[in-house]
Structures are given as structure tokens and as C-alpha cells.
């Protein structure tokens, strides 16, 4: 597969994504909630491994391992981010964004698989960064359908389990919350210095919420203090089962970034199109 065909292939791919956007509207992320996302992800990993190992179909393996692909997909990522950056509403479920991130992850998976099998200098740095990006972005991508965010107005009088999701729909959650005490500390000029809300969960457990210090309700659910009025406080309830995958990825990239600083550019000629 020559260079120009690689460019054509990716342009066609991106045009199809734009057509899907025009024809179908927003990407139906909710349809990929667990276990569908896990099943598709496993198929994706296995299929990628087979294509990589067998180099069949050859054109696909070449496409996904080519350095031109790295450049094109990074450019596409910048382009879709720019659209996001100038747009006033969130486009995170746009087809073109999903398409670019899916392609970027697939390319990253191929490049990472190749990187592990080659004797290369700075292997630790390469793996930390590339595998870290794979986990951090992959965790966000595959985990997005399982992520739920609600807001609750929690007052002192009656416990409540009523919440509003990110689309404005009312729902009733598994736990009842009641505000026991809310305290605001002020600076001398009257601006808030700190907020603290003590809440009672299901009539028995007590938790103190402050800004930047969420309360872990379960392995996947966290409560956040988002705001307050004299009558009630706003509690954010976030359910994000994939957060651990992203956390590991973020720290791997940070370790890789430290190595990037320590080891520097080096100006070593790399042959064979490795990225």
C-alpha cells in the first residue's frame, strides 16, 4: 500500500464518519453499555492481534502500522478537537470524534504491539507512554457508555433519592441522602473560603463532603459537593466503573513523561517507519 493510498483510505474513512453524522445525528453511545462494550472491545483486541500477527489482510496491517497513519490521525484528532474548541456545545458524541478516537486507538494498539516485539532503545519510555495513552483514552472511550452522572438537591428535612441525569431526566437512585449540616467558612471580605456538607446516607452512614474531596460510596460511585443554597446542597453522583483503567493509564503516561524529560530527544535515526 503506497503513501497516497494510505491518505485516500483515511480520507474516505473520515468522510464516511461525517456522512454518518449527517444521516444519523449523535452517536448512540448508550447502546454500547456493559456488557456490549466489553464484548466489542475484546473482539477488537483479538481481531487486531490476529491482523497484526498474520499481516492479513496485508493492506490493513500496512495501513495501521504506517507512520503516515500516525501523522494523519494526529492531524485529524487536532482537527476534531478544534471543532470542539470553537463550538459552544459539547460534541463528544459526534460520529467524527468517535471515528477518529477509534482509529487512533487501533493504530496505537498496533504500534504498541510492534513496539513490544522490537529491540529498541528507550523501550520503557515507549511502552509507558503508548500503553498509558491506550489505557487512558481507551478507558474513557470504552467506558463512556457506562459512565453516569446525576445531580441531587439534598436538603435537611427529608431524605431523597431523586436525581437528575446529564440529559435532564429525573431518576431515583439506590441510596437516600439527607443533609445533616452545611458549613461555609468565609474570608474577611466575605468570599467563601471553604464549604463542607455533612450528609446522612440511608439514615445511618455519615459522610463529610468538601470541594475537591469526593466520598467513595462504592467501588464505582462517588459523591461530590457541587454547590449549595441556604435550603439545600447540590450533590454530584458519579458512577464510573472504568475510572481505574484511566487512572492507571494517566500515571503510566506521567511516568513516561518524566522519562521523556530525562532522556530527551537523542536524535537517533529510526529506520523502518517506527513511531
Amino acid at each position: 500500500m503506497n503513501k497516497s493510498r494510505i491518505y485516500v483510505a483515511w480520507v474516505v474513512y473520515l468522510v464516511v464518519a461525517c456522512l454518518c453524522q449527517a444521516l444519523f445525528g449523535r452517536f448512540p453511545a448508550d447502546a454500547f453499555a456493559f456488557p456490549v462494550n466489553v464484548a466489542i472491545m475484546l473482539l477488537w483486541v483479538i481481531a487486531s492481534w490476529v491482523v497484526y500477527r498474520e499481516r492479513k489482510p496485508a493492506w490493513l496491517a500496512t495501513l495501521l502500522l504506517s507512520p503516515q497513519t500516525t501523522f494523519i490521525l494526529l492531524a485529524a484528532f487536532v482537527a476534531v478537537s478544534l471543532i470542539q474548541g470553537f463550538h459552544s456545545t459539547g460534541l463528544s458524541s459526534a460520529w467524527w470524534l468517535v471515528a477518529v478516537i477509534a482509529a487512533l486507538l487501533t493504530h496505537l494498539l498496533f504500534v504498541t504491539m510492534r513496539g513490544t516485539r522490537r529491540d529498541r532503545s528507550r523501550l520503557a519510555r515507549f511502552l509507558l507512554i503508548h500503553f498509558g495513552v491506550l489505557l487512558a483514552i481507551g478507558g474513557g472511550f470504552w467506558g463512556a457508555p457506562d459512565t453516569r452522572q446525576w445531580r441531587m438537591a439534598v436538603g435537611e428535612k427529608n431524605p431523597t433519592c431523586e436525581a437528575i441525569d446529564s440529559k435532564g431526566r429525573v431518576t431515583y437512585l439506590d441510596h437516600e441522602l439527607r443533609l445533616k449540616h452545611f458549613n461555609t467558612e468565609l474570608y474577611p471580605d466575605g468570599t467563601p473560603k471553604s464549604h463542607a456538607a455533612k450528609i446522612v446516607i440511608d439514615g445511618k452512614d455519615e459522610a463529610t463532603l468538601t470541594v475537591n474531596h469526593p466520598y467513595a460510596l462504592s467501588w464505582k460511585d462517588d459523591l461530590y459537593l457541587m454547590g449549595a443554597t441556604p435550603q439545600y446542597c447540590i450533590i454530584g453522583w458519579v458512577s464510573q466503573p472504568w475510572k481505574y483503567v484511566q487512572w492507571v493509564g494517566v500515571w503510566m503516561i506521567m511516568a513516561g513523561a518524566v522519562l521523556l524529560f530525562v532522556q530527551g530527544a537523542g536524535h537517533k535515526t529510526i529506520k523502518g517507519g517506527q513511531t
Binding site: 470542539q84 474513557g140 475537591n212 487512572w247 494517566v250 506521567m254 518524566v258
Partner: peptide
């Protein structure tokens, strides 16, 4: 390297403050 550390420390902070590492 420092840009990455800055961006990701922001992501970890965002998770503690708003509940998600990245929200566009």
C-alpha cells in the same frame, strides 16, 4: 514532557473536583 504532566495533573484534579478525568 511538562505539558503532559500539566495536562494529566489537571485530569487527576478534575476527577477529584468534578467527577471525570476529561469532559471536553
Amino acid at each position: 514532557a511538562f505539558l503532559t504532566l500539566g495536562m494529566l495533573s489537571g485530569a487527576l484534579w478534575a476527577k477529584e473536583a468534578w467527577g471525570d478525568y476529561w469532559s471536553w
